[in-house]
Design a protein around this nucleic acid. Sequence first.
RNA 1: GUCCCGUUCGUCUAGUGGUUAGGACUCCAGAUUUUCAUUCUGGCAACAGGGGUUCGACUCCCCUACGGGAUGCCA
Length: 514
Amino acid sequence: MNKPVVLRFAPSPTGPLHIGGVRTALYNYLFAKQQKGRLILRIEDTDQNRYLEGAEAHIRESFKWLGISFDEGVEEGGPNGPYRQSERARQGIYRQYASQLVESGHAYYAFDTPEELEEMRNRLKAGGQKLVQYNYAVRPQMKNSLNMPPEEVKARLDAGEPYVIRMKMPRKEEIRFYDEVRQWVVFHSSQLDDKILLKSDGMPTYHLANVVDDYLMGISHVIRGEEWLSSTPLHVMLYRSLGWEDHIPVFVHLPLILNPDGKGKLSKRQAYKLGFPVFPINWQDPQNGELSVGFREAGYLPEALLNYLALLGWNPGTEEEVMSLDRLAELFSLEKINNSATNFDPLKLKWFNQVYLRSKDVEALLPMVKEELKKQELPLPSDEFLAGAIELLRDRVQFPAEFVTAAPYLYAAPEQYDEKTARKRWTPEAKQHIAALLEQLKMLENWDAAAIKATVDTYVETAGIRHGLILAPLRLLLTGQPKGPDMFAMAALLGKQACTARIEQAMNQLPLAA
RNA sequence: GUCCCGUUCGUCUAGUGGUUAGGACUCCAGAUUUUCAUUCUGGCAACAGGGGUUCGACUCCCCUACGGGAUGCCA
């Protein structure tokens, strides 16, 4: 019988949710969904010193925007709660297992002070040791329960002396584990150190907490970033030492996401320099007040971000690229996850954004355009007008804001006219024709694109001139721009009143080309 | 330094011993369009290097180089 599929995403609220975390969460989500399993959101807040106010809320908000939902978590509830490790720690869960490990001889108490540890490291370094770590070799020289009589240990403990519990890493043991992405990975325990499992503040370290919780929560697959690969042997040892060898989850270590130039882990700094976000939604650093613009605020659609991210390290093995979340969940497979680090490509993300933006119906786009108008402090036209504007512009925008910024003339008469175009097109001859055409346009009863076009066509034909002589200057007068969407449709949308007014206004104002 | 992981067009990638090495983004050219964008067509562009194994290696093995990660009372 197959074990139930239970996944978890376990962020630490020491900072905002990062794009790499989003991808990890996404893969967890996709796999859980595909396998009809459960997905848990667990908050790994065991570091009291680095806890950041607002980070947890940022994480939650981000997922809400992205449309990634969890079956269990702090807000969702569930049978495996509590879902914050700090709360679980308060229940004594981790201490209990740490004690069990001490009793079974797999771990021990250590009373070394930070200064003593520092001294030990310096000594090893000075001695030319290649392994500078608290391990089987230095263990006998340190202040720990392995080197003192039980009475002394008890006395120190009873006296409330600060202590940690360390893993007693065996001296010589091969640790093999299977990773779905890298296949078999082998480590030797001799290279590993006696990692702290329980800190002196009583909190567990990540290693202990994640193993205990994964076991307790019945996690079947651990999908996480590659930076965890190196500590996986410790985790495996922990499972073994706790007698949970049969419950070791399937490990899936995802390749890292690097900066666009391939140099180093994707960083906020690099991203900022290149002009793209790294956080799903805005993040204001509570310490220095610095604001980082999120993908949401920058005009990215969650579908686009997710689609792009899904393909960053995975692909369906076909040439299908534009996929909904449902489709992704359908096609997702662990075997097809890539094993090499990947560069973040903001250009391709933009392309996805364009694809998704264009496919949205007017109803969905309307609120985005309105919001942008509000932001720009522009008057709010009717929905009908905006719908027309959206249809007019949909093939030429990558971001919602561009429905406004790319065509400001739809919302207000132009105040400036493109100089180069004016110099070239606004000739005395052009002005003369436009004036004559204006009279005809004024008489037009049905102000629609076809009628306007017919009027212009007829005028051009009878005057025996080329379209360019009329069209380019006309567009200039109407919009101030040399380019833009279909002019007749645009003029129709603007309305007769506005168009004739703009033409007249420009005829009076705009100096002729020499 | 040590351990671990990795290396196909500029980028994301397909590829599991015999392929004209395929697709997408970017870029370029042409067509369409009143212009720009869209769309369509076409083009440029890759197996890190060296040894093996094999009739035959992008595919398997080893070495080198390069990149990355870990090496915390952080996750």
